[in-house]
C-alpha cells in the first residue's frame, strides 16, 4: 500500500505566484502540507504552500505539441512590434 502522491507548489514570497517544486507522499492533505514543509522549505524557501493530488492534474501531451502550440506561431500580428509607427509619434 503506497501513500498517495501530491504535487507541491511554493510561493517564495508575497507578490509571486506559487511554483511547482516537486512531490511528496502523504495519507491526507494536512499531512501532505506538513511533509511538503519539511521537504521543500527547510531554509525559508516559502511563505505559502499548495498541495494537489497528483492524479488531479491533467497535462498536455508532448506528442500534440504542434497541434496545440503551432497555431500561435504565425500570428505575429499579436505582438506590438508587428505595427510600424513613425519615429516622431511618441508615447505609443
Amino acid at each position: 500500500m503506497e501513500l498517495p502522491l501530491w504535487e507541491v507548489f511554493v510561493r517564495s514570497k508575497h507578490g509571486l505566484s506559487h511554483r511547482h517544486v516537486g512531490s511528496v507522499h502523504a495519507a491526507d492533505p494536512r499531512m501532505a502540507v506538513e511533509a511538503a514543509r519539511d521537504v521543500y522549505t527547510r531554509r525559508m524557501e516559502g511563505v505559502s504552500l499548495w498541495v494537489v493530488p497528483s492524479e488531479s492534474i491533467t497535462a498536455s501531451d508532448p506528442a500534440e505539441f504542434s497541434s496545440l502550440f503551432e497555431p500561435a506561431e504565425d500570428k505575429v500580428y499579436r505582438h506590438p512590434t508587428f505595427y510600424v509607427v513613425p519615429d516622431n509619434i511618441k508615447h505609443i
Partner: peptide, 26 residues
C-alpha cells in the same frame, strides 16, 4: 540534526524525480 534532515530531503527529491519516470516508491 540539520544535516541529517537535509539527507532525508535529498533522498525524497530524488525518489520523486525517479517516480516521474514510472518507478513506484514502493
Amino acid at each position: 540534526l540539520a544535516k541529517i534532515q537535509d539527507e532525508a530531503g535529498h533522498g525524497l527529491y530524488l525518489y520523486a524525480a525517479a517516480e516521474t519516470l514510472g518507478a513506484s516508491r514502493d
